[in-house]
Amino acid sequence: MKVSLFITCMCDIITSNVGKDTVELLERLGCEVDFPDAQTCCGQPAFTSGYLEESKKAMKQMMRAFKDSEFVVGPSGSCVGMLREYPKIFAGDPEWEKEANNLAAKSYEITQFLVDVLGVTDIGSTFKGKVTYHPSCHMTRILGIRDAPYTLLKHVQGVDLIELPIKEDCCGFGGTFAVKNSVISGEMVKEKSLHVSETGAEYLVGGDMACLLNIGGRMTREGKNVKIAHITEILNHHQ
């Protein structure tokens, strides 16, 4: 199966290890992975801030970059969620409507792709440690992915998966919200950090690096010794 990796700008620039794990994981499961070099950002920072025209320029670039791809798979519920919103945004646009539908229909978040498309639930990986999982908002509510990450994590040998209290509450990231409403965002992430501590987990795992950097950044600020890990890091781990 031919898969184009949608790296997301954050995982390209800030946390590039996530991309490496994603590529290795897909290849291990027999996918032929390519990386369309013309991809940039899904446009979400501008879109959610109200800059529709600016965001569309980014979106058009993404549609051009993935035009010929069979499947587009990315390690982020939120960024893939943005691609899935393109049809709404370009509805009625004679030039781009079709392209938007085309990209949205073939785009998947990585755990969704593994479980729903490849039909895999056990990757055959091993990871020893106490783990708690934060189900990020857009992954859950925009993409509707609720079970796939848990299914995959439960099959990892050695993982002790502990339920995160009030897991459905937003961590306070919210894109520019974290900067513009830093007081409220700060209170939200403080509560999330508290809930992570309550689990006693050594690792906080998630499917969206932005949320993990938010919670992880709060936890290091508080001097907590909980590591953050994108779910692909756990799934691509053997020992």
Binding site: D12, I14, T15, S16, G19, K20, D37, N214, T220, R221
Partner: peptide, 15 residues
């Protein structure tokens, strides 16, 4: 309210 990591030593695309 929180720390931010330094960008990766190597971007994904260069890797």
């Amino acid at each position: 309210n929180r720390d931010f990591p330094a960008p990766a030593k190597q971007t994904f695309r260069s890797w």
